[in-house]
Computed example of a mutant assay.
Amino acid sequence: MSGLRGPRPDNQAPGKRRPRDPLFAAVAGAFPFVPPLLDFFLQYLAAERRLAVNTLAAYQADLFSFFSFLARHSGGPITQLDDIGPDHLRAYLAACHRDGISARSNARRISALRAFFRFLLGEQLLKRDPSALLDLPKPGRALPKVLSMAEVDLLLAPPAQPTPLALRNHAMLHLLYATGMRVSELVKLPVAAVNRAGHLRVLGKGTKERLVPFGEAARQTMAVYITQGRPRLLKRRRSDFLFVTSRGTAMTRLRFWQILRDRALFCGIKRAISPHVLRHSFATHLLEHGADLRAVQVMLGHADIATTQIYTHVDTARLKAVHRKFHPRG
């Protein structure tokens, strides 16, 4: 196989695993040619396709999962990438299935492998694409989980004690439901992104900016937090981030997840809840009340309207449930 045609990735390449990572060490030990090619691919995804850091990490995890399997179950010597064939991919998929990995996750892993092989083929670093003839059934799309309006009301009820942390949490929950933002967008939101007229400038996937409106209820909770809660959290410190911790640092996705989980338990919401459930609820409730699908797509930041159309299926499922419950011959 010829050498790399692009610049060799440095130690700060997107998604690059540290040499002390056991999985990295296992793959690098079995296939020393893989890590440089993988770093080259991740740099391409970051620079040319402008994929988000979380997406790059997912690509890396899926690819290392495959090569880790191959290191243990290759069934023969693999000294270069061209030694990998469709049978290796089928064996990997079968092992994933035996391990209880869902069809959707398997499809995602193969999508990562296909993108990797096609990239190397285009760079003339691969003679043939082992995934080209692989026939994968398309997994059905699971309907997103959605909160009822009663559950939303419980979740967004004013805090009993208006402490700075309670005001912050209340504002974050209100804003997430009011805008349908991703949690990664919420925790990185700068103060300057908030427009007092009721709009947010959100930096989404691929660093694409979009303008998202929010209503009066969210505006009021934000105003209370900004004037009363945030200054007391920051004290005399400065931060560009809208939502900060008690130490004045930016919020994290994990911390917000914990806040949401604790709030749901406190409100008596028994089922599992995540930040994305609020995003799903935002879209579904808008469509249920007559919003235009294209407008919801823009607010969610979906590049393809087909991604947004799943929420129309949720509404259809709800209508069917109502029909079965109330129609005399349902």
Rank of each mutant, 00 (worst) to 15 (best):
Q80K: 10
L165V: 14
P159G: 06
L125N: 02
P328S: 06
E209S: 11
N54I: 03
E216Y: 07
D129I: 00
D292W: 14
F24D: 07
L293C: 11
T284Y: 00
A52F: 05
F69E: 03
A178S: 10
G290Q: 09
L136A: 07
A112D: 03
D99C: 11
L176G: 00
M181Q: 01
Y92C: 07
L70R: 04
F31C: 00
Q258M: 03
M172L: 08
K325C: 04
V194T: 01
D240H: 04
T245E: 11
R109W: 07
M172R: 07
N11V: 07
G140N: 01
R182G: 01
L233H: 04
P86A: 15
V322T: 06
H174M: 14
F119T: 05
R329P: 11
Y177M: 12
P328F: 07
R118I: 13
D39S: 07
A107L: 07
R18E: 14
F117R: 02
G268C: 05
H323N: 02
K235P: 03
L155V: 01
N11R: 00
V187W: 03
L233S: 02
L175H: 05
P9E: 10
L37G: 02
L51V: 14
Q124S: 06
P137D: 13
Q12G: 12
P164K: 08
L265P: 02
H289C: 14
